[in-house]
């Protein structure tokens, strides 16, 4: 009878470990959130407090940046972001930066109104193409319409040969144009504000 018992234990134990493998794999996946996280924008108050915390503790930023999106419950990537003032900073920051240099973009008009996007060190491409960083759902925008790139700690706006042109304020830009915080970029029906 001992033999019978051992056989049954081996048989059921095998199934148990098989299921443990599946469960561990699911646990790994549960923690594996990557890509673009979209969070619902907070009330103005909490955004200001975020900005405040960012200016106060610049050293703590990179660590917090990596952690913040990953700590989100993966089941609810949209919405339900805890009201705690988690610092939201661009993922790649450059040390030598002009004090007036912009750090992020906010879409203030157009179909994407309300979307904010950090300025990435790799540059931000705006356009209708799915490969753009800011994908504009705008009939007047070109596939790769304009880009914002960094050079020597400054950010430049540059038109990528679009059909309808890129406007900075009221001026249509001709070449790479220096960007300052507070300026507005207009592409087709979309207005993007540059913020510090």
């Amino acid at each position: 009878m001992g033999g019978e018992l051992a056989v049954s234990l081996l048989r059921l134990g095998y199934l148990l470990i098989l299921w443990l493998f599946v469960l561990f794999a699911l646990l790994v996946l549960r923690r594996d959130v990557y890509g673009t996280t979209i969070m619902r924008r907070q009330a103005k108050q909490s955004r200001k407090s975020k900005r405040a915390s960012r200016t106060q503790a610049p050293e703590a930023r990179p660590l917090a940046r990596v952690q913040a999106p990953l700590d989100l419950p993966p089941a609810t990537p949209v919405g339900a972001y805890p009201p705690a003032p988690a610092p939201i900073a661009p993922p790649v920051r450059v040390s030598a930066q002009h004090p007036e240099a912009p750090t992020r973009l906010v879409v203030t008009n157009g179909p994407l109104r309300g979307t904010t996007l950090p300025l990435l060190a790799t540059g931000v491409v705006m356009g209708r193409s799915a490969l753009a960083n800011l994908v504009l759902d705008d009939e007047y925008a070109s596939g790769r319409h304009a880009q914002i790139v960094q050079q020597g700690g400054e950010w430049y706006l540059e038109d990528l040969g679009s059909t309808n042109g890129t406007y900075l304020g009221r001026e249509k830009i001709a070449g790479p144009t220096l960007l300052r915080a507070g300026q507005t970029i207009r592409i087709g029906n979309t207005t993007v504000e540059v913020l510090r």
């Binding site: 081996l10 095998y14 470990i17 098989l18 443990l20 493998f21 561990f24 794999a25 790994v28 923690r31 594996d32 959130v33 990557y34 890509g35 673009t36 996280t37 979209i38 969070m39 619902r40 924008r41 990596v66 999106p69 990953l70 949209v78 939201i88 993922p91 109104r113 309300g114 979307t115 904010t116 996007l117 950090p118 990435l120 800011l134």
Partner: peptide, 29 residues
């Protein structure tokens, strides 16, 4: 309305090793 942030992934190489050892154990069992 929304904030778009790129989130960095974990590399997961240690998780992979751990799962790999369970997989090997199951194969040998």
């Amino acid at each position: 309305m929304a904030t778009v942030l790129p989130a960095a992934p974990r590399r997961g190489r240690w998780a992979e090793l751990f799962l790999l050892l369970i997989a090997l154990l199951l194969a040998f069992m």
